[in-house]
Simulated assay, not measured.
Amino acid sequence: MKSIPDFLKWKADGRAITMVTCYDAATAKILNASSVDSILVGDSCAMVVHGYDSTVHATVEMIATHTAAVRRGAPDKVIIADLPFLSNRKGTEIAMDAVDQLMKAGANAVKLERRKGNIQLIEHIVDSGVPVMGHLGLTPQSVNAFGGFKMQAKSDAAARALIEDAKMLELAGCFSVVLECIPGDVAAQVTEALTIPTIGIGCGPEVSGQVLVVNDLLGMDRSFQPRFARKYANLAETIGQAVDSYCADVQSKAFPAAGEYSSKLVKAAS
């Protein structure tokens, strides 16, 4: 079984890390039999599963419920759970209660967005025996401050600041850092500057690994096709066609057919 220390080994060996975001036991069961290294139970579940317009609607209880489901489906994978919006900004006691819930739900680590104002908490979480993954660049919980889901670190000053933030996260004890929607050359510089691995999404190939939402790579949503999310399947079409075929068979009474149901009454023993 893979574990958190493997992340450092994989970077040292130059071996790319694979991660997907997943929220349910059925999909996690499929992933457990795949070659993917790790699963992120992201606060993006608020959007992908619950239909909200941003991740700020995620709660600790929501993430814990999805984490427990994914753990039941994928007992052999490294699972990282997101600390949702403001759960880490209400004082150490409340933050640690959130960490406690996510770890007891089955996570191997937690992920925390941004550096500013979080260093002492990260140190405390790590000192408590819980691995922490950082997250820089486009941090979706800050969507309102950014004015939307926009590319980050586009200027020289912003790039330098992000690199320094990444170094501080490493010093605080993070075992890896997610880099989201930043220029490829900046992501490469961050990766070079750190000992710990970087996991990229929308920031090019010169990182230690990649993460995609499994629903995106499977093509589950026809209306959501960001440039960075390559589709490896088109399940929205496949599922739609399957359901339409089922409906047609029901209406024509082709389903159920002989052999798909019992045609004889089973008499009780007298």
Rank of each mutant, 00 (worst) to 15 (best):
D127Q: 11
R160W: 03
M19N: 06
Q251R: 14
V132C: 08
D37C: 07
N88Q: 07
T65E: 09
V48L: 01
Q189I: 11
L212Q: 03
Q152F: 13
A254Q: 10
I94V: 10
L265W: 03
I119F: 04
V178N: 03
A28M: 08
F228Q: 13
C181Q: 00
L194K: 10
M19C: 03
N215R: 03
A159T: 09
M103N: 01
E180D: 11
F7G: 11
Q189P: 06
A28N: 08
F149W: 01
A12T: 11
A33T: 13
A172G: 06
G106K: 03
T18V: 04
A98G: 01
D100K: 12
A158H: 03
R15A: 12
G134H: 15
I239E: 05
Y52P: 02
T195N: 09
G51N: 00
K150V: 15
S87R: 02
K253C: 06
A98W: 00
A69T: 09
D97G: 05
A145R: 15
E164R: 15
G259T: 13
G200P: 06
R230T: 13
A12E: 15
I196F: 06
D76V: 09
T59Y: 01
K111N: 08
A159E: 06
S208C: 03
K154C: 11
A254R: 14
A269T: 14
I199G: 02
T55P: 04
Q241P: 05
K29I: 02
E61R: 08
C45H: 10
S34D: 09
S44Q: 11
A109K: 05
D216P: 02
G106I: 02
K231A: 07
A158P: 04
L194T: 13
A145F: 15
S38C: 14
Q225T: 15
A69K: 09
S176N: 06
V36K: 00
E206S: 15
I199H: 02
T92F: 10
A145Y: 15
G91R: 00
H50R: 02
R230I: 14
Q120L: 10
H135K: 03
A107N: 07
P5A: 05
A153Q: 04
R230S: 01
L169A: 10
N118S: 13
Q152K: 10
G117K: 10
F224N: 02
H50L: 04
P84R: 05
A229I: 02
T67Y: 00
L136Y: 14
S142N: 14
M151C: 12
E237K: 12
A95M: 11
K104N: 12
Y246K: 01
R227I: 07
S3I: 09
A193F: 12
D100G: 02
D221K: 04
H66K: 10
T27V: 12
Y52R: 06
S245C: 04
F224L: 09
D43G: 07
D216H: 00
T55F: 05
H135W: 07
E113W: 08
V186C: 09
